[in-house]
């Protein structure tokens, strides 16, 4: 279970909310309201104050990298540092299954990063971000560069993660996606998170 208590980011807070295992919480709000900062703060990539704990493990009880290997922030635009897709995964990781699940052919593992479309990059980043089954997934616009068909595949992948017990915090402009995936919706309103009843 995720417990966020009195979280203060650069422009919001204090915010408190909890999320149970196997659920998806959507955070909504206008652009620039600080949704990304909330996700980045939970992953401890940006400075913030307040208690965040996952399964009773406080973020300050472990190092930044230890925390971030459990709490996975998936940025809308992901970075790559090697030439090919394959080089961003461990040698023993079988890529063909996950690639197929997201509508990419098995030979894509040898594709050059510089020739990928933004949608392909986003899907590859998703595979990379989820390969070690993080307990908490902070998905920041996971389908922003995707067409309808790919969006369905990514939605399925996230739904599988939720079904297997992960917690997903979702930020997305895609109303349909949040409506279908989210167990609860929280809206940023006047520096607070308000529960939205749908």
């Amino acid at each position: 279970m995720l417990n966020v208590s009195e979280l203060t980011t650069r422009n919001l807070g204090p915010l408190s909310f909890t999320a149970e295992k196997g659920t998806c919480v959507a955070i909504t709000g206008p652009s620039g309201s600080g949704k990304t900062l909330i996700l980045r703060s939970i992953a401890d990539l940006d400075q913030s104050s307040g208690d965040i704990s996952l399964d009773n493990k406080n973020r300050f009880d472990c190092t930044g990298p230890q925390w971030r290997s459990m709490v996975r922030y998936l940025a809308p635009e992901a970075g790559f540092w090697n030439e090919r897709i394959r080089d961003h995964f461990p040698d023993n990781f079988d890529l063909s299954g996950p690639l197929e699940q997201l509508g990419l052919p098995p030979e894509a593992s040898h594709w050059e990063i510089s020739r990928l479309s933004s949608g392909e990059r986003q899907r590859v980043a998703l595979i990379r971000g989820l390969m070690d089954n993080p307990c908490l997934i902070l998905a920041d616009e996971p389908t922003s560069a995707l067409d309808h068909d790919s969006t369905i595949l990514v939605e399925k992948l996230l739904a599988d993660q939720i079904a297997s017990g992960s917690i997903v915090i979702l930020v997305s402009h895609d109303r349909d996606l949040t409506d279908r995936l989210a167990t609860r919706q929280l809206q940023i309103s006047q520096n607070q998170l308000i529960e939205v009843h749908t």
Binding site: L45, P65, L74, G79, W81
Partner: peptide
């Protein structure tokens, strides 16, 4: 210029020194 790659590595749980290696 490599902010995106470095932050992605950090987000994946790499240590800072590892993310900064290149």
């Amino acid at each position: 210029s490599e902010r995106l790659a470095i932050e992605t590595k950090l987000a994946l749980g790499h240590t800072f020194n590892d993310a900064m290696r290149q």
